[in-house]
Design a protein around this nucleic acid. Structure first.
Lengths: 183, 183
DNA sequence: ACAAACATGTAACCAGTTACATGATTCA
DNA sequence: TGAATCATGTAACTGGTTACATGTTTGT
């Protein structure tokens, strides 16, 4: 099973919602999918160039000087379907906060509690950001280019909410156990 | 802020629980912290060599021929404390399943539901594995070398449980909404 | 006028995986 | 005796970040 270039999948997928600029691709991914995926410009633009060379995307002049608008071609849509059927390669988890907390016996109780609070605050911020996203997706026009997509975007937002709420619950419970809750 | 070699942190931390081999370092990380961190051998052994050169760990002959046992030195413990106080550099999230689901409008309802089921099964497996871990940590002797550490290991296990339960809840809800729950 | 957001791209760096290579010990 | 697990290490590759460089448009 040839390894799949996940960035291609993400970029092609974003363009399947509607044609957009490389900049907008990143926004689309960051805003709704941010908790589960990320792409940097240094990754997106080369990917777009490669995809164009392979005939998977078409580049059209954008609205502003120098700007471009990329659209999926028929081949690109096929390629996307192919990539979507590829098994997800699980990324090695890397949660620096939990790593540090795991060594709390060296860090000490007070600093460990601070770590947990950091986690809690992050979860809270995530929840707030997701509420904004949800409101925005809900208010989108019914018939737009990405109408079918909305349903799945909401599913992903819901996954983020579940995850953030779980993190919040855990943090509060952990703080009570650490008895280091000083705020 | 000089970027911190996270692997050093993980390795030094594992050795702070008790002296062990490079192989055991990986196990220690994989078993309890598996949901939140991972290290490969290709990373651990070079790190161990570097840490030894810097005087942070001491290498002793292990029980078997060719095997080694690494122990933290005083300087190593100091270094670990220093690294623990370093801000966690958030790793870019990479959840391939959610990425694919986000483009469910291209993938179709049936295949999207399969993705969600995959997520659900993974969460269930995680919950089962964590139950085993929890039982094992609970049954460890009270006075061992890593007694203080236990408390934090349990905190991390609890984080894993919260996260897995949330994923499970979400998956079940999502399946109901997709109406593609065929098992 | 100015700041913020939009937009595109390159180059250097590096963390981390994977595959390969090798051998010892334990247990069935 | 053979398989599974314990154990150590190297080398090639590459995905992905970060920093840099540059310019436009919109809104205040």
């Amino acid at each position: 099973m040839a390894r799949v270039r996940q960035t291609d999948l993400a970029v092609l997928g974003a363009l399947s919602i509607e044609p957009m600029s490389g900049y907008a691709v990143r926004e689309a991914i960051r805003d709704v999918l941010g908790q589960f995926w990320s792409e940097s410009f240094g990754q997106i633009y080369p990917a777009l160039a490669g995809l164009e060379a392979d005939g998977y995307v078409e580049r059209q002049p954008g609205e502003r000087r120098g700007g471009s608008r990329y659209a999926l071609t028929a081949a690109g849509r096929e390629r996307l379907v192919e990539l979507l059927h590829t098994p997800a390669t699980p990324a090695p988890p890397r949660n620096g906060v939990l790593l540090r907390l795991f060594f709390g016996h060296v860090l000490g109780e007070a600093d460990s509690a601070a770590l947990v609070r950091e986690q809690r605050d992050r979860a809270q911020a995530q929840l707030a950001a997701l509420a904004v996203e949800r409101a925005q997706v809900d208010s989108e026009p019914q018939g737009g280019p990405g109408a079918e997509h909305r349903r799945y975007a909401l599913l992903v937002i819901s996954a983020g909410e579940h995850s953030a709420r779980a993190a919040l619950d855990w943090a509060e419970q952990a703080l009570a156990e650490l008895a280091g809750d000083q705020d």
